[in-house]
């Protein structure tokens, strides 16, 4: 049985319609009009123990909403979520014992309480035995460097410090699953890298299942074996990173240094090659690697120019995702895309 089962999951938010003008406002006091926003629409997937899943998508796609339903914060409008065989929002306490959650935007710790006291409260709340608490604290302290701010109240922590404290608190009780909603938001490069390494270690050594959302594709590349892409509440892609790269990362980029300036060629263009940025004698060419081979292009160029140097770049994951999002937007529902823009 899969660890997490999600079937036809759907979440609608009711938003009160805002009225402008006196009479519409008066009317809305008597008769309230709501508009329904479907944040998650019939999403189904399963996740097995030990997986590290990246859940990505443009702003407002429904990532956080899905996570909140898996965690038990929100009650689904319809559909099924089962985690460890339990329905999270019906068994909040039992479910909470086995999971850890970090929301990049909000702390799960007690706001007015110093970090170390907050962690101690976590210990009591989760009934963590002394020896395990000590062991984990020591381990986490090494990676997350909590000492420098452990006496500071959570409200006064910097973003990065808060995230480190939250991560520590979320993992102290050795949860089976951790949900990380934008765990690397606003962190500096060093801390980001450290946190990625930490997550990787936890996954490898304890077999902890990790579900994370992010807008930083390096997180995905360095951590996730599987990616799910959502847009407008719909699951658009679910598979491993390699396949995603093959499916959407087919645009390759080549940079050629030539002795003489490179002239655009109708012939190359007909072969499916697009000209990018050109500066002095360095030219960028992009093409679909599934329809034309780089050796064919370089051969064509070498017959006409003397080539000093050239490099072939695979499309970066950032670019792939950007292409994918743009692709989704063109295919997706333009009406709701416009509605978003108006709000």
């Amino acid at each position: 049985m899969a660890l997490i089962e999600v079937e036809y999951l759907r979440k609608e938010f009711k938003r009160q319609k805002r009225k402008d003008g006196f009479w519409p406002l008066m009317k809305s006091l008597v008769h309230r009009e709501y508009e329904i926003k479907t944040a998650v629409e019939n999403i189904s997937f399963t996740i097995d123990r030990g997986e590290v899943v990246g859940y990505i998508g443009p702003n407002g796609a429904g990532k956080s909403t899905t996570i909140k339903m898996m965690v038990g914060i929100l009650v689904p409008t319809s559909g099924i979520v089962r985690v460890n065989g339990l329905v999270p929002y019906e068994n909040r306490i039992e479910n909470a014992r086995r999971i850890g959650a970090v929301f990049g935007q909000k702390s799960q710790l007690w706001w007015d309480t110093p970090v170390i006291e907050s962690l101690r409260l976590t210990k009591y709340m989760y009934d963590i035995p002394n020896d395990r608490y000590e062991r984990n604290m020591k381990l986490f302290n090494d990676v997350l460097d909590l000492d420098e701010f452990k006496k500071v109240a959570v409200r006064s922590l910097s973003l990065g410090q808060r995230m480190r404290a939250d991560l520590c608190a979320a993992l102290l009780h050795d949860p089976d699953i951790v949900y990380l909603d934008e765990p690397t938001i606003g962190l500096d490069v060093v801390v980001k890298e450290r946190i990625r390494q930490f997550i990787r270690e936890i996954n490898r050594e304890r077999g902890t299942t990790v579900i994370l959302t992010t807008h930083d594709m390096a997180d995905i590349e360095k951590l996730c074996s599987r990616v799910m892409v959502v847009d407008h509440g719909k699951l658009m892609y679910d598979g491993n990173l390699e396949t995603l790269k093959n499916d959407f990362g087919n645009m390759e980029k080549m940079e050629v240094d030539t002795d003489e300036p490179f002239a655009m060629s109708e012939e190359l263009r007909r072969m499916g090659v697009a000209f990018g940025l050109t500066e002095e004698n360095r030219t960028q060419l992009t093409y679909d690697k599934n329809s034309i081979n780089s050796t064919v292009i370089i051969k064509w160029i070498m017959e006409r120019y003397s080539v000093r140097d050239f490099i072939v770049k695979e499309t970066e994951i950032e670019q792939i995702i950007r292409d994918l999002y743009i692709h989704l937007q063109q295919q997706g529902t333009p009406v709701s895309a416009r509605e978003e823009a108006l709000i």
């Binding site: 909470a96 014992r97 909000k106 702390s107």
Partner: peptide
């Protein structure tokens, strides 16, 4: 503020948590 989330992810009845914090 939406920070009520944190009471719903703890292994303790939110009603009790609300009282004791």
């Amino acid at each position: 503020m939406g920070t009520f989330d944190s009471l719903l992810v703890k292994p303790i009845n939110p009603f009790v948590h609300m009282i004791i914090r």
